[in-house]
Amino acid sequence: MKERRHIISLLVENEFGSLSRIAGLFSARGYNIHCLNVAPTNDESISRMTLVTLCDDLKISQLMKQLNKLVDVVNVKDLTEETHIEREMLLLKLKCNKKQRDEIKRLTDIFRARIIDVTDTTYTIELTGATEKILAFINSMGKIKIIEMVRSGALGISRGIDSLENIK
């Protein structure tokens, strides 16, 4: 069966050990985590996690059931099953000499990124967008040396009135 990329959104109790329960489930059952993001929500008792995994159809349905079974998981949804919006943030620190500065500025404008820090030898750029856009931007750097790269991992939210916070 073919592996597909799934974005899974989870609401978990903001309790001691919740993150390791989820991470532990993935490692114990042999699922991969491509990227993972955790942060508090407007309800302080709940954290929201977004994670991306590669799975075939059989594996993803088993994974969703296993996640649902965890006592700390309040709600879980595979966002790729419905229309959703996906964003990721990139912070990119580049080494650049005088000659490269114009080129970097141009690329930054084309991708609607922002330069957020400048020194005499570096530019640091912030870019938000879907994962493909982030990757395209990184690829467009060509010979420009990347000193450091930080990505938030994908964040996702469903379109329209749907909410994960309609507790299970």
Binding site: F16, G17, S20, R21, G24, A28, V71
Partner: peptide, 16 residues
């Protein structure tokens, strides 16, 4: 204790 027993319990608690 909670770390070691996480995969072998249905759930576990550390009382604070």
């Amino acid at each position: 204790a909670t770390g070691i027993t996480r995969p072998v319990t249905k759930h576990n608690f550390l009382i604070d």
